[in-house]
Design a protein around this nucleic acid. Structure first.
Lengths: 398, 398
DNA sequence: CGCACGAGTGCAATCGAATGTAGCATACCA
DNA sequence: TGGTATGCTACATTCGATTGCACTCGTGCG
């Protein structure tokens, strides 16, 4: 049948066709539309009786008696582009409101519109520090009209999963990496050849190809801690925390460790064997490290933990061993978790410029936008917060 | 090839001919079709040179010399439905791999496919309990091939934002509500007329219309705590924590409070004025409540905090006041945060069946699937964990 | 009197993938 | 050798919203 030759439909009554779309008065024209279930647009309004009652833009259009494109123009609020009769506009808005119409973000995204979604990949959401970071970022993102999609890395092992999580959700406008993920090469790799911006926060301060970095000045923070402890007379200072990947120190914790070592050397501090300990960044890891330190022939009088989590673990272990903190030993951390103020004794630590970093991260992610390549590195300074877990070095001689 | 001649060229292979269908066969016809840019699909392969280098399925098809639909069938792995020549299949897979093709989830979703996304709405991600819950849910979701989208409620005020977060992300296959959100009527309202499943976790144990509930047996948990304290000889027991909305007690905390009151009454405990205190669920709130309790003419010998966060705050305040815990006062919590084991002294509390609840929640969300209406209520039992913050009641006479 | 201009709308193509169906081969059967 | 299976592909439609373009109807101007 002539089914194939669509062409002509237009020849038909031009204006007729146009106007009476919904009507039924164009037998001829439709007919030739051929084998199709015909009745081109009537279908919609009629057939739309799907089980789901989520209204589409077409539904709104039908209800308001205008075309779907008009509804689109009104709802997307394109203000100046194309003029819409105020009366029509009001009517459409009203109908849409009544029908509780919600635009389908998928359809929007398909056309290339921004999804207003920020992907956040965090290694461990249970780390209170990152929970706080997610919160700060989420707050900041909301201010700009963005929402946050959380991808979970679950430690290094399941990198494959995290990877998929990202790629599959690549309908995000940008991705923020929280914490060190450089040990997930596949992830980094896949991220590199995407076309949206990637921003790394708390990943250390080293520039990385293709991604913007927002970091904290770890050297400055550790320096402040050391100043504080040295000022209290400590000369035997130990360090807890390290993160190695194939022998390389990485990320913030690695930087803190390096900063500690350099400063210790510069001050000519004693550095007995075992004064620098690796530990998993968990409460348990901190506790274990403290026990080991205390078992050393020469005990330190102060301990710098590379994170508050480690410090809190160490604190607990110390109290458990009956040690007086800070009487016998001072313990300081890094991060200033909300909890740090509520430990016993309250923890001396380093406060992150959390809100600022979140703001900078979101800004970079959003602004950078199309502009890949234009990656930046921003390093913010933390501040030392002195509480109760650090005190004068015991003059004791052991 | 006959580059020059616009019309079809008969270029050789029959196959070719097929390809350019619309292209040429109707010179006259087109004319009248009027002005359309015609040349239906050839365009694609040529024009597709957009700046972005994310390959589409069509690109893969072109590269492999097959049609887009064939690529789709190969990649989606439709196993038995339609047979594909193994050789073709391999070729396509290879090309796709080389081009690093990734399916566009938006397009997929638009067709109604499951997005494999679970929306999780949490009021405060900084609450370590919920951070843990998110972690557990995320783990469980990943096992089933789902990823988690986090919606952030940020306390009650910005309910509008949370609401939008949800509705805008309604391309989730299901939504999990973490913690009490019943004070966000607009949210609940909007959620009600969606067509996907909604599951509430840690929202108390009362059935709710249209949503499945996974709860913990608060009465049982509080009962266990009371058994423990009563067994230690405590008769003057105070309670911290309450959440009121318009005079109604709600959620888990509300249930714990009710359970406490009932049990206290049943045991005929003394209940001096002020022994039951409201408090914001924060460390600070817990600390404040403890100070108030200790300022009472009659001090309690034990305190039941409705969450670990409150308990830890109280613990800190107690230590700060120089009180001996548990010597002078016992403090117990609820939730068993990771941190609970590392406070000083370690906290006696109630352990959530976290993994089980997460599993049940995800299962409900996923299985329920289409089957709205089929909502359920599951109540799991927690277990008391005795540590160091609770001890025998002082026989003292105050 | 006609024509251009512009406000206001509708039409139809489009985004990328999924899928029902038509169509072409080759193979097999009668 | 004609006819029918059947394996394999291509075509065209679809999802919902966006958007370039065309079209209609008034108006004002030449």
């Amino acid at each position: 049948m002539a089914a194939r030759n669509p062409k002509r439909s237009s020849t038909a009554p031009r204006r007729e066709a146009a106007r009476q779309k919904v009507g039924s008065t164009d037998p001829a024209g439709l007919k030739d539309a051929g084998s199709m279930p015909q009745d081109g647009n009537v279908r919609r309004s009629a057939t739309t009786a799907r089980p789901t009652h989520i209204p589409t833009m077409q539904d709104v259009a039908d209800a308001a008696g205008v075309s779907q494109s008009t509804v689109s123009r009104v709802l997307t609020g394109a203000p100046n582009a194309i003029p819409i009769n105020p009366a029509t506009r009001e009517r459409i808005l009203e109908v849409a409101r009544q029908m509780r119409y919600r635009p389908n973000p998928l359809a929007r995204g398909l056309r290339g519109a921004r999804t207003m979604l920020l992907g956040v990949i965090v290694r461990e959401i249970t780390d209170p520090f990152f929970a706080g970071a997610v919160d700060a970022i989420s707050t900041e993102a909301n201010l700009r009209g963005y929402n946050v999609v959380l991808g979970h890395a679950h430690g290094r092992t399941d990198e494959a999963i995290a990877l998929r999580a990202v790629l599959e959700t690549r309908h995000c406008d940008a991705i923020l990496l929280l914490g060190d993920t450089s040990d997930q090469p596949r992830l980094m790799d896949d991220l590199r050849d995407t076309n949206f911006s990637v921003v790394g926060l708390w990943q250390g301060t080293a520039p990385m190809p293709g991604i913007s970095i927002i970091g904290v000045d770890n050297r400055f923070g550790v320096g402040g801690l050391m100043d504080h402890l040295l000022g209290l007379g400590h000369r035997k200072i130990a360090f807890i925390g390290g993160a190695f990947i194939e022998g390389q120190l990485i990320g913030d914790i690695g930087e803190r460790r390096v900063a500690f070592l350099e400063r210790a050397a510069a001050e000519g501090l004693e550095a007995p064997e075992g004064f620098v300990r690796d530990a998993q960044n968990t409460l348990h890891g901190g506790a274990g490290a403290l026990e080991e330190l205390m078992a050393l022939p020469q005990r330190p009088t102060a301990i710098v933990a590379s994170t508050d989590v480690l410090a809190i673990g160490a604190l607990h272990a110390a109290c458990h061993m009956g040690l007086d903190v800070p009487g016998e030993i001072s313990i300081v951390g890094f991060d200033d978790l909300p909890m740090a103020e509520y430990t016993t004794p309250a923890l001396t630590t380093v406060r992150m410029p959390m809100a600022e970093m979140a703001a900078a991260g979101v800004k970079a992610a959003v602004d950078e936008g199309e502009d890949r390549e234009a990656t930046t590195v921003q390093i913010l300074k933390p501040t030392v917060v002195v509480r109760e877990s650090s005190g004068p070095a015991r003059v004791a001689a052991d």
